[in-house]
Design a protein around this nucleic acid. Structure first.
Lengths: 351, 351
DNA sequence: TTGAAAGCGCTAACAC
DNA sequence: GTGTTAGCGCTTTCAA
């Protein structure tokens, strides 16, 4: 069995409270005593029992991150960033997968397991605005994404409208006039698709280019295969366009694949831009232009806000925070020579 | 403050032990008592404090998964599978990222945080065979991958040699004779690269095809960019080959990109196969043939073995388990028409 | 500067 | 069937 404070105290010949003081860096410990205790700690290989500490102190040093699925690259990269941000503050991250299903999302918030952590970073997909009041748990919650606003929790979002507008303007600036969209959701107003569509329309309006529903590919779900299918359908309908805005990178890549199979050159015949700045967009052929919606900032902000809220649960009104974005021009809009082909990539260990 | 057992007991008018019995489904509780208690639980919104339960029972219901980085698709998919497998057994998963750095890998095993979980599933990358004796922690460890063998821990691996041999045979069966390799590690014998190279060589030997080091692309790290660079170098050297085996999918995709940029048709001019069966291989152009090394089985086996070891730490000698693999033929070897283009994909929620 | 004692919320002997 | 009691290992008053 592992050594306890008492064992250390016995070996060091002091009371176990003194050992506790040493461990917690209390100021009033004589140096000689401290040395004795540290020697005993080393000798016994003592490690504090975090469970006991948690019970006593009321916090665990862990946060829960709930996402749909890690195999979706966006969430994998988000989780990566959250774990790193948490580690900087000495927190560990417990990950729950909801599959994007409303039931499981609700379950995460009400599960007793949540109390193994001090707070929840919650990225719902199945729940919607109508569930805003159900976003609460026994621990502070920081909400991510565009499914739910005004939930009463702190909320971090991308600037979906402005970023989508900027992506559209990137294409317009390159002289493209007929920009097809892949991934719209019928009738959606908020939500990632709805907001990004609004940005798209704003960009058109600002340049007096009419909106044409005929070059908008609708779908129920941003599944990879749907991007390809929608692109294929637009081609078959014979509508004309000179660029494609995929409402996320995965859709854009699916669309790009279809265009290339059909014999179009990207970007010469058709320019393509995505949204998310997934790692893999740097490695497609051609590399995919996209929008970096500020994922690292989302992660860092989420951790920071959550920690503040944990420390001070009644610390003022819920915050609504939007992160900075950035259009990333690559080969799929700029062509082989003008793109930032040598931009630094993320570090990539050996596997 | 949240309700405790005592609060429930008071409201229900019973002793708090009775409440405990109800919660833990002890058999000897009168139905009427049980009903009263359950009513009180509902009324107070009581949720058991898992921290206290952990302290008392000595286990937490969590396991730690340590991987290099979640933004590497292989590890994202592994983590996804591990979380799902753990959830089936009511366990939650705490994820640590090591960056593939030896120091941080060692730190994960000695960190007191590890004791917030009951066991560790450990996928090292920086540590090597020489560190075999350092693989130990305060909790049971299940080791993953090919960096370290005979560590004294349970160990789950792919059949790297056999799977790589099968991938090579897939190309040979299609009539390819000069198979280039991308991703070899100079002098490595064990480790993913070394073992897969052995499988490659075994396949050649079995057909009396001479091994030719001139068509092997060496690199220090399986970084995405390195696959492309190695491919480019082979092309520039002017050596002849009719197929490429990327020792993982990422390398294969990088190589494929370079081949296409250089004007080769895949698979007509050059067939390409990878290793790992990442989701994204289904969506590249052309779709990438690869080997499914049994990732889901790895995850499920790791959880099962770990649970057994947690329950019974002295339960016999450490196990060495190899998972089943499967060659997945797609367009990059079979061409557009013969490939399993409509194989079912993983589910993919709306984002 | 150090020690004694209480108790975080729960489980598990054991008595009744 | 139900209640009493004693800790799990730690932090935190408070007293010495």
């Amino acid at each position: 069995m592992a050594a306890t404070l008492h064992d250390v105290a016995r070996v060091a010949g002091v009371s176990f409270k003194t050992v506790s003081n040493v461990i917690n860096n209390h100021p009033h410990v004589r140096d000689s005593t401290r040395a004795k205790v540290e020697e005993a700690i080393a000798a016994l290989g003592y490690r504090p029992n975090l469970t006991a500490r948690s019970l006593r102190s009321g916090h665990t040093g862990a946060v829960t991150l709930a996402v749909p699925q890690l195999r979706l690259p966006y969430f994998a990269e988000l989780a990566d960033a959250v774990i790193d941000a948490a580690a900087k503050h000495g927190l560990v991250v417990l990950i729950e997968q909801t599959g994007g299903e409303r039931e499981r999302e609700l379950e995460v918030m009400s599960s007793p397991r949540l109390k193994m952590s001090d707070g929840l970073i919650f990225s719902p997909l199945g729940m919607g605005q109508e569930d805003a009041e159900l976003v609460k748990a026994d621990v502070p919650v920081v909400l991510l994404g565009e499914r739910i606003f005004s939930s009463g929790c702190d909320h971090i979002t991308m600037q979906n409208v402005a970023a989508a507008r900027a992506a559209t303007e990137h294409l317009l600036d390159l002289g493209r006039q007929r920009i097809a969209v892949i991934g719209a959701h019928e009738g959606e107003v908020i939500g990632s698709a709805g907001l990004r569509m609004r940005g798209y329309r704003e960009a058109l309006e600002a340049r007096n280019i009419p909106y044409d529903d005929a070059i908008v590919g609708y779908m129920w779900s941003w599944h990879r295969a749907n991007g390809a299918a929608a692109m294929r359908e637009l081609l078959e309908r014979g509508v004309e366009f000179d660029a494609v805005f995929g409402l996320n990178d995965t859709l854009a890549q699916g669309a790009m694949r279809v265009l290339q199979e059909a014999g179009y050159r990207v970007p010469d015949d058709l320019a393509v831009i995505g949204f998310d700045d997934l790692d893999e967009t740097r490695y497609s052929l051609p590399t995919l232009s996209t929008v970096d919606p500020g994922r690292d900032e989302i992660a860092e902000t989420a951790i920071r806000v959550l920690m503040e809220r944990i420390k001070n649960p009644d610390g003022g009104a819920p915050r609504e925070i939007e992160t900075a974005f950035r259009v990333v021009g690559r080969e799929s809009t700029l062509g082989r020579n003008n793109s930032g082909a040598n931009e630094p990539g993320p570090s990539d260990p050996n596997r």
